[in-house]
Amino acid sequence: MRTLYRSLLKLLPRLGVQVVDLGPGEAVVSRRGARARLPVGPGADLVARTGRRPYAVSQVGSDQWLVTRGSAGEPQAPDGAWQSVRLGSSGGHLVLDPRAAADERGLQLAAAEYLCAHHVAALLARYEVNCVFDVGANTGQYARRLRRHGYAGRIVSFEPTAAAFAKLEKAAEGDPDWTVYPFGLGREDETMSIHTAWNTMNSVLPPSDYGRDRYHRFAKSQTEEIEIRRLDGVMDKAMAGIDHPRPYLKMDTQGYDLQVFAGAGERAGEFVGLQSEVALLRLYEGSPRMQESVAEYESRGFEITGMYPVTREASTGRVVEFDCVMVRAAAVPE
């Protein structure tokens, strides 16, 4: 004899309500879209929206399953094809699609970007950073990454090019602790020309022969007049209202980082840490090599905590640029 509960379950679809019966006394009821019950493993099921994009379930460890959904027509990894890689004794696991694992260079660079962001977030917390200077902000990628990794303090971003600044300004809307400025930083207060047709690689420096061979975008030669200011001249305004400022300096200015650093003058010692893109292979004429940059930072009391590849040559494996993360060890809180 059917119970009232079962009768109601059968009635609901006639009213436009979708039902997935999970067993005695248990059901999932939804207003829109059909749902399906997918067996994941012993004692575990997944209830998911059905449609043209199928779900694939793969076991990646004891009592652990990976559920994926691809775009229409995108091939799905077969069950069991995903690899679960243990990350040492950290307790973490990396789940890899075999296709991704086969792209050694792409995987390494993606992992380096994540590890760098994770490391920086930990340093900001350890050194109690309350103001990040984001120099060469472009459209705000770095600041958004900081927020995703949990940093909640002040961010001050500098981007001199008009098109990128418009996007940066929009990205910072709604974040009261993220301030943006439409100028660059350098050794002197001045006006300069910057190449603006190179997307995230815009620079005040011309490309080197190596850079032109590597990137076709350097063949374009559009320029824009921009304002440059010294870092020590904007620090007080940027940190206004912060009790006991503990700033961190991030620079990504396409070969111009040492000029930005020089503009800090004697106030460079106020930064508890810094992050600079240093080059082993010069993309820009007149840019410093990694050894020169690191030596200058070390001479001001900063020491390396991490080096993360930013770009690598596909043909040779050589690293072109590193993200170099440094701190002043004496600045670590008691």
Rank of each mutant, 00 (worst) to 15 (best):
A125T: 07
E313N: 12
H216W: 06
S71P: 15
A262H: 09
D209W: 08
R35C: 15
G73M: 08
L87W: 04
P309N: 15
A112N: 08
H216M: 06
S221W: 06
Q18S: 14
A27Y: 09
P309H: 12
R37W: 05
R126Y: 02
N202S: 14
L109E: 04
V325Q: 06
A264G: 06
V67C: 11
G73D: 13
K167D: 09
Y256K: 07
S315C: 12
S30A: 13
E128R: 15
R52W: 02
Y55G: 12
D243N: 02
D134F: 01
P39G: 11
L66Q: 00
A172V: 09
D175L: 04
A36K: 05
G255M: 07
G33E: 13
A36H: 12
Y308A: 02
R312Q: 14
G286T: 13
S89R: 15
G51D: 04
V278W: 03
I304D: 03
E128L: 12
E169G: 13
D175C: 06
F302N: 00
G241Q: 09
V325Y: 00
S315F: 14
W65P: 00
D97I: 10
A262R: 05
R145V: 05
T196R: 07
P245E: 00
P24N: 08
G174V: 12
P247E: 02
G51C: 03
D257Y: 00
E159Q: 06
A330G: 11
Y5N: 07
G23I: 04
R31L: 10
N130D: 09
V95I: 15
L38V: 11
K250M: 04
E169R: 09
D236Y: 08
Y308R: 00
A111W: 12
V272N: 01
E292F: 08
I304N: 01
R145W: 10
R300S: 07
A48E: 01
A163C: 12
V47D: 11
V204D: 07
V17W: 10
L146V: 05
S62W: 15
E277V: 01
P247C: 07
G286H: 14
V17L: 08
F302D: 01
G73P: 00
V135W: 01
T200F: 01
L107N: 07
G301E: 03
E266W: 03
Y256M: 05
N202C: 13
W65F: 14
D175Q: 14
A264C: 09
A101R: 15
Q76Y: 12
E266L: 09
A197R: 03
V332C: 05
L15Y: 10
D252N: 11
A48T: 00
V40F: 09
